[in-house]
Design a protein around this nucleic acid. Structure first.
Lengths: 256, 256
DNA sequence: AAATATAATTAGCCAAGCCTAAAATTCTAC
DNA sequence: GTAGAATTTTAGGCTTGGCTAATTATATTT
């Protein structure tokens, strides 16, 4: 049963819940040190906050055994993420911000806007489903389409793919990617890969306007893509592995 | 010498400075109890905060003798007020908010927006000079045009004036005034006044579309106006008293 | 299995902002 | 000028959300 309430949370509380949500989603679980690292807060402080969040029923917590978002905690996390991404989209589309400027601004505003304002912004934007980096925007109702995409890092030479999301917040990196034309929607093809985590040569765009650029594994990791049928010369594709991961794998260790 | 700095202040600090600015402006000084009343905070807590603000050189303070904004404090206060009013204007003009909804939202956002965002909003609005209630918007450089207006309460029967500002934040009162057509820009004429702080009958608008409404002294006090030359039949104007009250006279009451 | 390394928690501290109750100061009236 | 009223400050306490240093629990080696 939802509190039905207009309960309001502090900025730090929302930040923790967001971080824990992202960690659960991407690595399956949220360890104290992970949270600490992500929020740039000392681990001891994280333990303290975890206790407070657990007291408020936003987390399930057993000392030394990790945390898990409760239903309420998940709802608050997704609401905060919705705010963040709607704000980012609004700043870019209505106020002409570039995609590298919006994160810092949204990070502060997400704790100050009302739900009514977020809804008005979303309406003005015609209910966007992704933010300027391609990240999905949770709905008002708290659902989100968290598809799992491959990164360019995982593509084999010759594979073609469309960039669907750029999973990075760093302004400098975003500016650089933007200058290479590596933004959501663009088509890329892996022209070459150097071994041992070496640089990846990408053909960016299609047809006559395509360019060729080299990116390191770190940037490649941020580029999430959807594979496209490779038109000709499928060079070297492995046998066809079964679905890489379950849609929402079990956040924690093996059932045993 | 300005700190030149991107110094950032907490929400409470900005709220105190705003309150002190408004009190200094409207009553000439800011007493502890006035601040406490305006912010709905216990006087003892206000003393505590005043000490902190003085430590930060935002106020000049001598115990038991009152406070005064320093140059820095004034700058921060005006910056916060600019943020507030630009946000209000943006919400109304871009997102279709009504003038009664914006205060609460701006009250939170003013502490979260960057100066860059405020400037972008102001640019998108073509550098507005007043907010939706007619309040002047301080410039980026920290200057404001704080003209002193009479209120409808001070108008004599027969006097015509233009509403320039509605000095109220309460949503219910603003909605009511809006429903009567009493918004900035509108012309009013005092058709009648009941004695002993009684209701004031106003002719609102001009020509064929004018309506007649009765407002109490409290609402009348919120309606700030600019007197207009009264066209004809100056009905009953007393001999021409010298300026009714000093620009910021004692609130009311018979001169005796 | 014991030793060590890593991770997490506890202990004790701090500042910001709030509170109430009590004391001090200033103002107002007589 | 002094008593009483009003204002302001001090004293002492609380919560939130940080910190470091020390301790405890869990994992990893050997």
């Amino acid at each position: 049963m939802p509190t039905g309430g207009a309960t309001t949370y502090t900025g730090p509380v929302e930040d923790y819940l967001k971080a824990i949500y992202e960690l659960e989603r991407s690595t399956g679980s949220a360890a104290t040190t992970d949270i600490a690292h992500r929020l740039e807060i000392a681990p001891a402080s994280v333990t303290g906050m975890i206790r407070r969040l657990a007291d408020q029923r936003l987390l399930d917590y057993e000392p030394y055994r990790g945390v898990r978002l409760t239903e309420t905690g998940l709802r608050v996390a997704l609401r905060t993420i919705r705010r963040h991404r709607v704000i980012e989209t609004f700043l870019v589309r209505v106020l002409g911000y570039s995609w590298d400027e919006v994160h810092a601004e949204a990070e502060r505003l997400e704790h100050a806007v009302s739900d009514a304002l977020v809804d008005r912004m979303a309406a003005a934007l015609d209910e966007p489903t992704v933010d300027p980096h391609g990240a999905p925007i949770p709905t008002r109702e708290g659902t989100v389409d968290e598809a799992h995409y491959a990164s360019v890092e995982e593509l084999a030479p010759g594979e073609r793919a469309r960039v669907v999301r750029v999973s990075d917040e760093d302004p400098a990196r975003l500016r650089y990617l933007g200058s290479l034309g590596l933004t959501p929607g663009v088509t890329v093809m892996v022209a070459a890969r150097a071994p041992f985590d070496g640089p990846i040569t990408l053909r960016i765009g299609s047809g006559r306007r395509a360019t060729q650029q080299v990116v390191g594994p770190s940037l490649a990791h941020s580029l999430l893509v959807e594979r496209l049928r490779t038109p000709h010369r499928p060079p070297h594709r492995p046998p066809h592995r079964p679905p890489q991961r379950p849609p929402h794998g079990p956040p924690l260790g093996p059932p045993g």
